[in-house]
Amino acid sequence: MAKVPLLKDVLKLIFSKPATIQYPREETPVEPDARGRQYADLSKCIGCSLCMIECPPKAIRMEKIPEGYEVPKRNARKIYPVVDYFKCIYCYRCVTVCPTKAYVVTNEYRLASDAPVNSRELSLSTLKKASQEPSQGEGEG
């Protein structure tokens, strides 16, 4: 039985760079369109809750947009989706069912944290902060 030249392969690997990626210190290469963290762009969101209804693991909750933001008129109920990234399975069903294509997709995969991680701040950062007077006027309207 002929012996396979495994030794050659082993020697080659001893002197080559390790295949293992030292993860926290070194970034894992991911594709630019890999499914990572997604959040709603509130300038497009109309608050229809379809993403919440369709979400397979029920990771999305609709919340009231807090005071002090300029909310587009299309979003009459003034609600927006908050994705709980610990529950999310990154299937992008919310992205594909959204009637206004409001979801912003990224390939960010580093989401480990002690504290709960959700899309609240990211989504709210897409809205302009309103100056005091117009926000009051909008609230009355």
């Binding site: 991911v30 890999a34 992008y92």
Partner: peptide, 18 residues
């Protein structure tokens, strides 16, 4: 891992394709 990469290119994730 090379094939997992290929799967990531096709589907967007290396394991769970969806």
């Amino acid at each position: 891992e090379l094939i997992m990469k290929a799967k990531e290119i096709v589907t967007g994730n290396r394991v769970l394709a969806d």
